[in-house]
Design a protein around this nucleic acid. Structure first.
Lengths: 346, 346
DNA sequence: AGTCAAATTTACATCGATGTAAATTTGGTG
DNA sequence: CACCAAATTTACATCGATGTAAATTTGACT
């Protein structure tokens, strides 16, 4: 019987052993306040003796809630999303919720709608971190349960949005390299298929920073990347180098792109930061350990996770039932490391 | 009402609309074979019309299963575990199961037992990937549901174990640097608090390789690391360099340690692979993109995940109820990259 | 001691799907 | 056309916990 599930005590068993009714046991366990100390002790003793654990399915069925939050991310193997998931799991755990992770890339249905249908009864709400949002993605958001989207709000969205200040953060990153005297600043990560929320904002932050220095955006320095994986960063930098255009810095829309770009630069014998300064975005763990270490924009992951989880739980537990959709901006910090400073930091 | 959960159709509603009994609907949906085509169509039309989705809690309560697998890993933010989780989620998904991830580090109870109690009714089985196992951890494994442990089996364990061939893999890695003529091979990752399964095996693989070359293990070259994070790799290499001992290669028990070690070497002006060859273990994504790229042992993550999920589901669905605990070794491959070859690969 | 309100416990229906076993329909045969 | 077996559908109890409302106990106060 080593691996066979044993029969497990039910609330009735506890009640019988304690010599009370089932409801009394339920009251004790759910912390109902008007229960005598004597009763509570008696019941708890029975609970301990039987190693009783509540049957979640039964409670869920009765209450209509599961205390499970969905988290939909493109794929966990991308460091940013893994670290985000880590934070979300902790934040949810602290509030007594567990997290079910969906990977939206290469799962059959890669839209919220699909997740929504599948999970209608198994999650109380969903935190959705899309790769990129387009204007007409709004209708995806019309789902059966509360939804918090990580990323900029889009016109007409009825979901809550939690996002870093993309324009300001990217502007700060770009200004950082400009302030060290560099003037030919390339950018990697623009979306090839037209503007989408996050990418568009980061591009604007880049342009704004240049504008402050009286520099016009040079289209030859704007590299697109369909996805934001390392390999796309390598490809983009390869193209940039092949084009022969002159540049002395590159700001990337995420760290994976930046690490890929550094890989390409290294292979082509360009010095970092001597020939080219590199800046990323996300502050994934690798950024601190790459060679050279990567200057990057650090979003406060824990803050994002906590905010998203709180918002979601408010909606779920009905305290914010009819409140208008919220759009919350979280803070960021520019972490300067070796890839953008000519003087070694250590 | 934007964010309020609406009332949702039940199986009874479908039955009424289709003009049949509830059980007939259930039969159609669960794929019972003796259902007329006419009936099936009629029911499915009603299902579509009402956008009916089955209530998982109710089904779980009735069948006593949840079709949810637990996955306990130390922390998702470590690339290896994130990539593993990715694979497990896909493998489980293909079998119609979903995955609930537990992080065992810094969650209140960091033992399987704790997970077990909490999740008794919410998961059908657990895949446990411990950081390190000691002999007396076996008693943790006496839980209410099927358990598959990722890592070497330990004496007396009644769980199934799925593991890479640690001795062989580490021996191959060590032999690789020896075969290129290096003779002073350091190792990072030995467990300071006495031997535990995985670390002990990898250390043995290292020693075996040296033995084949007639070299004795030099304790001065064996560096411990309490955890296997990048920062521990940095610390270990710092200590090694500070000790002044001579070495021309280092094999590490995982990639994070190796990347940390490379970071330290780089900072101290040692060339890789010129002065020191570096080899890791795990083949996380960063390994391919580090500078220089990292030679490492690649466990077949998908194979591990698939094997673990299959074993677990066999136990859950009762087809292997009383079979003896299994111990399955999965394959590995040595991926040679720049960090161990003097001739640049690209 | 008698009353009444508050405190506490109890009985019972209910959440939604499924297994069992009985009831009914369908179809093939002689 | 009657009859039996096979195919299909139906009724009903059940999984385990919780909310409602009624029943009972407790206790304060006159």
């Amino acid at each position: 019987m080593a691996q066979t599930a044993r029969t497990v005590a039910t609330m009735d068993d506890v009640a019988i052993l304690a010599g009370v009714s089932r409801k009394t046991v339920s009251n004790v366990l759910s912390g109902y306040e008007h229960v005598s100390v004597k009763m509570r002790d008696r019941v708890m003793r029975a609970v301990d003796e039987l190693h009783y654990e509540i049957n979640v399915s039964a409670r869920n069925l009765r209450v209509g809630r599961t205390r499970v939050l969905g988290l939909a991310v493109p794929e966990l193997s991308q460091a940013y999303f893994a670290e985000l998931a880590d934070s979300v799991i902790r934040a949810a755990g602290a509030r007594g919720y567990t997290v079910l992770i969906e990977q939206t890339i290469s799962d059959s249905g890669n839209e919220v709608g699909a997740v929504a249908a599948m999970r209608k009864h198994s999650i109380d709400g969903l935190i959705y971190s899309p790769l990129a949002l387009r204007a007409n993605d709004v209708n995806q958001f019309d789902v059966e349960f509360p939804l918090v989207v990580l990323g900029e709000g889009i016109e007409g969205s009825r979901a809550d949005h939690v996002t870093i200040s993309n324009v300001a953060a990217m502007k700060a990153a770009t200004t950082h390299v400009l302030s060290s005297g560099r003037r030919r600043v390339a950018v990697i990560g623009a979306q090839p298929e037209g503007p989408v929320a996050t990418g568009a904002s980061r591009l604007r932050g880049y342009a704004d920073a240049l504008a402050d220095y009286g520099i016009a955006v040079d289209p030859a320095l704007v590299m697109t990347a369909a996805l934001w994986h390392r390999t796309d960063g390598v490809a983009a930098m390869d193209r940039l180098l092949a084009s022969g255009v002159d540049f002395d810095a590159v700001v990337c829309f995420n760290d994976a792109l930046a690490l890929g770009a550094m890989r390409s630069l290294h292979r082509h014998g360009r010095g970092i930061p001597g020939d080219v300064a590199v800046v990323g975005f996300d502050d994934i763990e690798d950024a601190a350990y790459s060679t050279p270490s990567l200057t990057t924009v650090s979003p406060q992951r824990d803050e994002i996770a906590l905010t998203a989880v709180s918002l979601l739980i408010e909606r779920i537990e009905g305290r914010a039932e009819n409140a208008a959709p919220q759009q919350i901006e979280t803070s960021y910090a520019l972490v300067v490391r070796e890839s953008s400073t000519d003087i070694a930091t250590l």
